[in-house]
């Protein structure tokens, strides 16, 4: 703070009353007789990076969607700092999908669209975001010709440029090479250092070890374990998590 007179919370561009913690109570999602999600009680606090781990089809992506209010659960409640995830709340949450949706426009126009929706278009800010993503100089390139790693970084930059309070990331480095993974993790790390809350879905146990402050293990739509990262990796409690960490196939 340049003048150092304002309390930190008021310098934030966000209204008083943060979005964390995220709370889910009694959330159930059933499709065709299948229980896809069954979350009795979940709280995700304001600190650092929460990693969602679990085998394919466990419901990790669904959990993120329900959290963002994109999918309405059949029962239960989802709140962010006490607020239901409506449009206003959703705009304060950044969401990068497993398959990033890039508009058929230039890289910069992708940022411009996202910023314009909230009336925040600022070219210099956009260029800084591109720089942070290692995409400086690609601003005029059509987004859809980018490489996989560039696409992920663009999607991440496009979410970050809106100054969200929370970032939901669904396997942002799946199918990227190590250098690209490092670039994306670098961006995530810098955002977290600025105080951003991140909820990250990943299959990459190494990545989870590098980034996670807290781990939630999901199996067949149910949370079998939620623990500080150090404890989880040292001594997973649930059988499913144990098997998963040791590389076993779990049913």
């Amino acid at each position: 703070m340049a003048d150092g007179t304002l309390p930190p919370v008021l310098t934030s561009s966000h209204p008083i009353g943060g979005l964390t913690p995220l709370r889910m109570t009694g959330v159930r999602l059933v499709r065709k007789g299948q229980v896809l999600l069954n979350i009795e009680d979940l709280t995700i606090g304001s600190a650092g990076v929460t990693v969602l781990l679990g085998p394919n089809g466990a419901g990790k992506s669904l959990l993120l969607r329900v959290a963002d209010g994109l999918v309405r659960p059949d029962a239960g409640a989802v709140t962010w700092g006490g607020l239901a995830p409506d449009g206003t709340v959703r705009r304060r949450i950044g969401f990068v999908f497993q398959q990033p949706v890039l508009l058929r426009r230039s890289v910069r126009a992708n940022l411009k669209f996202a910023m314009g929706i909230s009336g925040l278009w600022d070219r210099r800010k956009a260029d800084r975001a591109l720089e942070d993503a290692g995409l400086a100089g690609l601003g005029d390139r059509p987004a859809r010709v980018l490489s996989g790693g560039e696409r992920q970084r663009l999607a991440l930059a496009r979410a970050l440029v809106l100054d969200p309070e929370v970032l939901l990331l669904d396997e942002p480095t799946a199918s990227l090479d190590p250098a690209a993974v490092a670039a994306v993790e670098g961006m995530i790390g810098r955002a977290v250092a600025r105080g951003l809350k991140v909820v990250l879905v990943t299959h990459d146990i190494g990545q989870a070890r590098r980034l996670a402050d807290e781990v939630i293990f999901l199996h067949r739509g149910q949370i079998t374990e939620q623990a500080a990262a150090r404890l989880f990796f040292a001594d997973p409690r649930s059988a499913a998590a144990k098997a998963y960490l040791s590389g076993l196939l779990i049913p």
């Binding site: 969607r65 994109l70 959703r90 949450i93 999908f97 058929r104």
Partner: peptide, 26 residues
């Protein structure tokens, strides 16, 4: 293709309409 992204940004319908027409211009 755009649906979930637009929802996550809470894009108003008229902005969505404009974006779809513009991006589909080809």
């Amino acid at each position: 293709e755009y649906d979930e992204y637009f929802q996550s940004l809470a894009v108003p319908w008229h902005a969505a309409l404009g974006a779809l027409l513009w991006d589909g211009r080809s």
